[in-house]
Amino acid sequence: MNDPDTPIVQLSESLEDYMETIFELVRDNKLARIKDIAKARDVRSASVIPAMRRLSDLGLITYEKREYIDLTPEGERVARRVYARHRLLTRFFRDILGIPHEFAQKDACALEHSLSDVGMDHIVRFFEFIQSCPEGGDVISRLQTCSLVNSDKKQCTGGCAVHREDRVVNQAQMKSLRQMKPGQSCNVVRINGTGAIRQRILDMGLMPGINIYVERLSPAGDPMWIKFQGSQLSLRLKEAEMVLVVSEDT
């Protein structure tokens, strides 16, 4: 999310907050005024001015003792980064951990400055992973219902398995890979079956969460040729039947 090649100006906590506020105001109103900044940050106008001078000196904003403040290109870059961190943390706290909005905001504000880049990076990864993983949404919703309904951890996890089966049975749009036509894409939900064939399918990296593109069928109509994650595989329709998928086109 940030370009590692160019150094980022190190800002104090409050300056980062100001950059964030300016970014939001500029984004929403095309310009930011001292008055608005003071209002948004809940401080007096007078106390905003020194901070603006400092940011101006750093070349992050244009501020000439007048009311209007704008971000320089460099400033916008810094602000975007700070803002993205803030937003991401807020969403992580709110959407994934299920922390109520106002607490999520507050915690994000507190944490965004003190979190190391490495720590942040890992949270980003986790966030991206859980969002891109098709099962992720389920996990989150279950986690949240769980923490609402029941505080007993064991029961909660036990219900998980049941939950999962429910989802599998109910999912009407779930098909087997066999039913996919050449040129279609789909997401793997589950691998059925047992023994060597299942193990081989898993060994080849065909597992839940993977996106598959059906390239073609053999001229005789049987083995299927699929592409995923940069590699190609052929498998018999009988084997494709074990792979349960959700079509991407529907």
Binding site: G195, A196, I197, R200, I201, M204, L206, P223, W225, S231, Q232, L233, S234, L235, R236, E239
Partner: peptide
Amino acid sequence: GEEAPFVMELPP
């Protein structure tokens, strides 16, 4: 015996 998997890599 159990049918051997046909799942086969198609290397470039």
